[in-house]
């Protein structure tokens, strides 16, 4: 006799050898609350995330494709997109190196105050962006703690693109550290010992053995820091100066358009920003995939 006798899956068939009950129906039968929990989840996600995002995606088209293109190709919008994505990229690159060193020091060395340093890494996550924003602005202004050191050299930091870059470095650091740290902590010590037994110097081991295995985590951290920096608002607008064409970031321009009741324009720029950042993440993911393929070959 075979299993064809039991079309209603879940009830054990007469022949049990090699038989696995279909997962879904099996679980759904034993534990209660499927309909209730799925109902809450779907309703909540629809009301809070999906419908609002649909409103965003639907809005730009009211003046047709031409209207969208006009809104997005406006020189002021293009300048802000260049600034936003450029400073986000530059800050993420700096954090790639700084974050790697911080993660390395936290996993490799034992020193007094280490757990404090470790907890401090999360400060940019925990500190509200408006607080970071006003504080960075006053620090890097010409009469601030750091700004006053650079002012005599003729370098202005606050109210310039340089200020945006500095703020985004603050915001992005934890993403790199927290992505790399666990991978570094679990790196197989035997691989490292093997490299050194074969005559590699500590420097060679670090660069040629450990670093390649960290690349995927580094890229993950990079893309998280980059994505956060592109959308960042609170920590940037105080220090940015917000001069059109010079230091005006895209999120601010969206808010300005909205306050001028240009809803379609605001939505068009917002959708363009979303599309560009998803595209960037796709490229980074592609690089990651390429690297992992090369690693296997």
């Amino acid at each position: 006799m075979t299993t064809d006798a039991t079309p209603d899956a879940g009830a054990p068939p007469f022949v049990t050898e090699g038989y696995k009950p279909p997962k879904a129906t099996h679980k759904a039968r034993v534990l209660p609350g499927f309909r209730l929990s799925l109902g809450i989840t779907l309703t909540y996600l629809s009301l809070i995330v999906l419908i609002p995002l649909a409103a965003l995606l639907a809005r730009p088209w009211e003046h047709g494709l031409d209207g969208v293109w006009q809104a997005v190709s406006d020189p002021r919008v293009v300048a802000s997109l260049k600034l936003t994505f450029g400073t986000a990229f530059a800050a993420a690159v700096v954090n790639l190196f700084a974050g790697l060193v911080v993660a390395w020091v936290l996993t490799r060395y034992e020193f007094p105050g280490k757990s404090l340093l470790d907890a401090l890494v999360d400060l940019p996550f925990a500190l509200p962006t408006a607080v970071a924003g006003v504080s960075l602005c006053s620090m890097y202004a010409a009469n601030g703690w750091i700004g006053s050191l650079f002012a005599p050299l003729g370098i202005k930091i606050a109210y310039t693109p340089l200020g945006i870059f500095v703020a985004l470095i603050f915001v992005g650091l934890p993403f790199i550290v927290r992505s790399v740290q666990p991978v570094l902590a679990e790196f197989d010590a035997e691989v490292e010992e093997a490299a050194q037994t074969l005559g590699a110097s500590p420097m060679q081991t670090a660069v040629r053995v450990i670093l390649p295995s960290l690349l995927p985590a580094l890229l993950t951290g990079f893309s998280l820091a980059f994505a956060r920096a592109v959308g960042e608002y609170g920590s940037v607008i105080f220090i940015a100066g917000n001069m059109p064409f010079v230091s005006e970031i895209t999120p601010l321009l969206i808010v300005i358009k909205l306050e001028e009741f240009d809803y379609a324009g605001a939505a068009a720029v917002a959708v363009a920003m979303l599309a560009l950042s998803f595209l960037s993440l796709l490229v980074i993911n592609g690089v990651q995939l390429l690297l992992s393929k090369r690693g296997r070959a």
């Binding site: 609002p52 995002l53 409103a55 965003l56 809005r59 962006t129 994505a227 592109v230 959308g231 960042e232 608002y233 609170g234 999120p251 601010l252 969206i254 808010v255 909205l258 809803y263 605001a266 939505a267 917002a270 920003m273 979303l274 950042s277």
Partner: peptide
């Protein structure tokens, strides 16, 4: 992943 500004303007829209 989306900008906080976008999380705000969707409600205005």
């Amino acid at each position: 992943t989306i900008s906080p500004v976008i999380s705000g303007i969707v409600w205005v829209l």
